[in-house]
């Protein structure tokens, strides 16, 4: 397959979310799809810019869409906030002619134009629709049967646009994917609840409460890891391992990206998928052969 995508990593994937970046690249490479990083991309604006200036927030985000139109491939944005901001910009401009004129004028000041021809997509949806579960299973070299993940979707990929599932209240796509790959996902009721987002810096006591709840739920359901789709969710939940959260208990629960788990299943090494960056180090033993369980320290017995 020679599918090509324009990759929009976003600011987090160059720093705290570096493992997401590594695993994205590794998985897409292994599956024969080409991810080419958007040349000279800028910040999507996230949730902060919209709080200060509206048209500027749309224009900042729209520069990326304009740059992406040069190749015309779909934009893949792994960070939930980037996915939301870029998609919101595209849909906002399409739905509001006045805003569109203003943003187009702003882009023109920088010598750019946007005809909004490229789609904005999340990698989970890309992997499930363009590649599909059957091909992922076909590409599988390692069993995931030691994993009991709590699949955590968080906010902005399910709301308000609904990237992956028909049911925004109870998405099941990650559960279906990982079950097909041999893992045993647990029932995880708070899967679409908020992790606290940027409140981790501005209102840490509130954010910690939310993240601690999410980790406690996963432990109560006897999950041996949490799987996330967003760099901010990952670091918020992962940091509970270090800061012990609201109730002073550290569960030492690995928090992984869904791409890391897929990567391990299709034969990427733990280093290739950035396991070394997880705060609870899932240090892997010798590479397993097909059908044999992965030995990863730090995982509870399932």
């Amino acid at each position: 397959m020679d599918t090509r995508y324009t990759y929009y990593p976003g600011c987090s994937l160059h720093a705290t979310g570096i493992a997401y970046d590594k695993s994205m690249r590794a998985v897409f490479k292994k599956l024969g799809s080409e991810l080419s990083e958007l040349e000279d991309w800028n910040c999507c604006g996230a949730t902060a810019y919209m709080s200060v200036q509206k048209t500027v927030a749309f224009a900042v985000s729209a520069r990326n869409l304009a740059l992406a139109e040069k190749t015309g491939d779909d934009v893949v944005a792994p960070c939930s906030a980037c996915y939301y901001a870029l998609k919101h910009t595209r849909e906002g401009m399409q739905g509001d002619p006045e805003l569109r004129v203003q943003v187009e004028e702003a882009l023109a000041a920088g010598g750019l134009e946007a005809d909004l021809s490229v789609e904005v997509r999340h990698p989970l949806e890309v992997l499930l629709t363009d590649i599909g579960i059957p091909r992922l299973v076909e590409a599988q070299t390692h069993s995931l049967d030691q994993f009991r993940p709590a699949c955590y979707y968080g906010c902005q990929i399910v709301r308000p646009f609904g990237a992956v599932d028909e049911d925004p209240e109870l998405p099941m796509s990650m559960e279906n994917l990982f079950t097909a790959l041999g893992a045993r996902p647990v029932d995880y009721p708070p899967k679409v609840r908020c992790c606290g987002g940027m409140l981790v810096a501005t209102m840490p006591e509130v954010a910690t409460e939310l993240s601690t709840d999410l980790v406690d739920w996963a432990v109560a359901r006897e999950a041996n890891c949490i799987v996330t789709v967003c760099p901010l969710c990952q670091s918020n939940l992962d940091l509970i391992n270090v800061t012990k959260g609201g109730n002073g208990v550290s569960h030492q629960l690995p928090v992984l990206y869904f791409t890391q788990l897929i990567g391990l299943a299709i034969g990427c090494t733990p280093e290739e998928v950035g396991m070394q960056h997880a705060l609870i180090p899932p240090a892997a033993e010798a590479p397993p052969v097909r059908g044999e369980p992965l030995t990863i320290a730090g995982l509870r017995e399932g």
């Binding site: 500027v56 203003q102 702003a106 000041a109």
Partner: peptide, 13 residues
């Protein structure tokens, strides 16, 4: 280029 875009967009805000 980004700064020019921002400056222009600010005139609308």
């Amino acid at each position: 280029q980004l700064q020019k875009i921002i400056a222009k967009a600010e005139t609308f805000d």
